[in-house]
C-alpha cells in the first residue's frame, strides 16, 4: 500500500471518530456532547471562506507575524553574530538580553500595551520578541561552532574583517540559523495568536476567541484549523528556503 494512502487514511479515521463521538453526544468523563460535529464545522468553514471578514482576519494576522518575524530574523542574526564575534559587544549585550530571555513573550503583553501607542504595534512587538530569542541563540551557537579553517583560508587570501563576515561567517552559519528561524516561526505563531486574543480587534486569534465568547463553537474550531494551516504553511516555507540555501551540506546531514 502506498504511504500516502496510510497518511490520508489516518486523518480520515480521526475525523470519523470525532464525528461519531460528537454526533452521538458521547459523555464518558470527556464531554464530547459540548463540541461541534465535523459536519457543523465544515459548514461553518464554507460560510466563512465565502465571506470577506475571513480574509481580512487572515491578512492581518499574516502581516503581523511577517513584520515581527522579519524584524526578529534581521536583528536576531545581527545580534547573534555581534555577540559571538566581539567580546566587548558580548559583554555589553548579553546580560540585559539574558535577563529578558526567560520571560515568555506573552507575559510581556501588559508592557506592550503600555509601551506602544497602538495595539497593532504591541502585537507585532510580542511576535518579534517571541521569535527574536530562538534566532539569536541559534545564530550565536552557529557562529561559535564555525570551523576556524574557513576563516583562516579567507584571511590568508587577504580577506578583511567584513569580507570574512560576509563570505564565511554568514554563509557558514546558515544551517544553524535556519534551525533558529524554524523554531522562531513556531513560537511567533503561538504569540501572535495569543496577543490577538488578548488585545486585538481583528485577526485570526481575535476572531477565534470572539467566537468562543459568543458561544459559536464551530467558529472556534474553524479559527483553530485556520491557525494550524497558516502555521504549517509558514513553517514549510521556512523549511523549504532553508533546504535551498544549505544544499552544500554533506548528504548525511540531510534527512
Amino acid at each position: 500500500m502506498k504511504r500516502w494512502v496510510v497518511r490520508i487514511g489516518s486523518v480520515a479515521v480521526v475525523l470519523l471518530l470525532w464525528q461519531v463521538l460528537t454526533a452521538s453526544d458521547v459523555r464518558a468523563w470527556l464531554r464530547f456532547d459540548q463540541l461541534p460535529t465535523v459536519v457543523e464545522v465544515a459548514e461553518r468553514f464554507a460560510v466563512q471562506v465565502g465571506g470577506v471578514e475571513y480574509y481580512h482576519d487572515l491578512g492581518n494576522s499574516l502581516v503581523r507575524i511577517m513584520t515581527g518575524f522579519l524584524l526578529a530574523a534581521v536583528l536576531g542574526i545581527a545580534f547573534g553574530v555581534l555577540i559571538a564575534r566581539s567580546p566587548l559587544l558580548g559583554d555589553l549585550l548579553r546580560p540585559p538580553l539574558e535577563v529578558v530571555r526567560p520571560i515568555p513573550a506573552i507575559a510581556l503583553v501588559p508592557i506592550a500595551i503600555l509601551l506602544f501607542p497602538t495595539d497593532e504595534q504591541g502585537i507585532v512587538f510580542i511576535t518579534f520578541i517571541a521569535a527574536f530569542f530562538p534566532i539569536l541563540v541559534s545564530t550565536r551557537h552557529a557562529v561559535r561552532a564555525l570551523p576556524t579553517i574557513w576563516e583562516d583560508a579567507v584571511r590568508t587570501m587577504g580577506g578583511s574583517r567584513w569580507q570574512v563576515l560576509f563570505r564565511v561567517v554568514l554563509p557558514g552559519t546558515l544551517p544553524g540559523v535556519f534551525g533558529g528561524l524554524s523554531v522562531g516561526m513556531g513560537v511567533a505563531w503561538i504569540c501572535v495568536i495569543s496577543a490577538e486574543m488578548i488585545s486585538g480587534q481583528f485577526g485570526v486569534g481575535y476572531r477565534t476567541w470572539q467566537a468562543y465568547t459568543v458561544v459559536d463553537y464551530p467558529g472556534v474550531i474553524v479559527g483553530m484549523v485556520t491557525i494550524g494551516l497558516l502555521g504549517y504553511l509558514t513553517s514549510a516555507a521556512v523549511e523549504l528556503l532553508g533546504r535551498r540555501v544549505t544544499r552544500w551540506l554533506p548528504r548525511e546531514a540531510l534527512r
Binding site: P147, I149, W150, D152, A153, V154, T156, M157, R167, V168, P171, G172, L174, T246, W248, L249, P250
Partner: peptide, 13 residues
Amino acid sequence: RALVFQEDGLLPW
C-alpha cells in the same frame, strides 16, 4: 602568503 590546508580548506557552499 597563501596557505594550503591538509583538507577542508575549501568553502563547502
